[in-house]
Design a protein around this nucleic acid. Structure first.
Length: 271
DNA sequence: CCCGATTCCTGTAGGC
DNA sequence: TGCCTACAGGAATCGG
């Protein structure tokens, strides 16, 4: 399930193959995604020269001479680079043939992802316009998080998973960073001291950076563009470990549901 | 504005 | 072994 580290891993996996490439042909095999793949995508993209691939939140932005392809992997989306004769697979949605002979394929079984096009600055697109800061960027710090949490009674875990607050923190890394920061996931966001918010920001950054370093987390179905899994699952402290012993204090890891999402934590370490 | 609930979808795991 | 159901989750959207 792609969160920021998995999306960044994907971006790095396709960057060198896409940079400078010319799109020769686009084949939309299934338009049904979170939003339908726009009918004009093929004509807009064909013939365009790709400059680079950026990431904003969990969106991949393939910038071209004509506009930008906006991809979101949703829950189950993946990109793979294959040869032109590689047979298609179930749930392939879009295939992009490059002048290098490589083909970029977007596959998404659960269809929570999207493939959109904008001729304008993608950061002005309605889906990206109102997003919060990047967790690894300079404007995400304890001062900011403490300020925007003022008066908020929502659980801190739901709060940091809110893309208007900070982007890219999904269910796995929210649980992991709250454990590392020693904060109980159900604590009201507005009732956390600034010093603890600073600690939380540091841990969010550290967890995400470590996960990127490891090529993401492969629990079930995430694989990099070359088909290799991510190895961060081995470093998970609480996620998916209910009933197991906390690595720090030995107490059982608990699981509860918060904001309709599975939440993992240690009562000995998190308050 | 704030916040919880609902919704989309398919593969997989668990129960019987 | 096979069938059925519950569950997983990103994030927009709705309702109170």
């Amino acid at each position: 399930m792609p969160e920021l580290p998995e999306v960044e891993t994907t971006r790095r996996g396709i960057l060198s193959a896409l940079s400078g490439a010319v799109v020769e042909h686009v084949d939309v095999r299934d338009r049904r995604l979170r939003w339908p793949v726009p009918a004009g995508l093929e004509a807009a993209l064909a013939g365009a020269t790709i400059s680079t691939v950026d990431r904003r939140a969990k969106y991949l932005l393939t910038r071209t001479s004509r506009g930008t392809l906006i991809l979101h992997l949703g829950m189950s989306g993946s990109l793979r680079l294959v040869g032109p004769d590689e047979p298609g697979k179930l749930h392939d949605h879009v295939a992009i043939d490059l002048d290098s002979g490589l083909r970029l394929v977007f596959n998404d079984p659960r269809r929570f992802g999207c493939a959109l096009w904008t001729p304008d600055d993608p950061l002005d697109h309605p889906l990206l316009r109102d997003l919060g800061p990047e967790p690894l960027g300079d404007d995400f710090d304890g001062r900011y998080l403490h300020r925007v949490a003022r008066g908020r009674r929502v659980a801190i875990k739901s709060f940091i998973m809110n893309a208007h607050v900070v982007v890219g923190v999904g269910n796995i890394y929210a649980s992991e960073s709250l454990f590392a920061a020693g904060i109980h996931p159900a604590r009201a966001a507005g009732r956390i001291a600034r010093s603890r918010m600073t600690k939380l920001v540091e841990e969010i950054r550290a967890v995400l950076a470590a996960a990127i370093e490891d090529g993401g987390t492969t629990l079930r179905d995430f694989y990099g563009t070359d088909g290799t899994p991510g190895y961060f699952a081995q470093q998970l402290s609480v996620y998916d470990r209910q009933g197991e012993a906390c690595r720090i204090c030995g107490r059982d890891i608990r699981r509860s549901v918060l904001g309709q999402r599975a939440t993992y934590y240690c009562l000995g370490c998190q308050h």
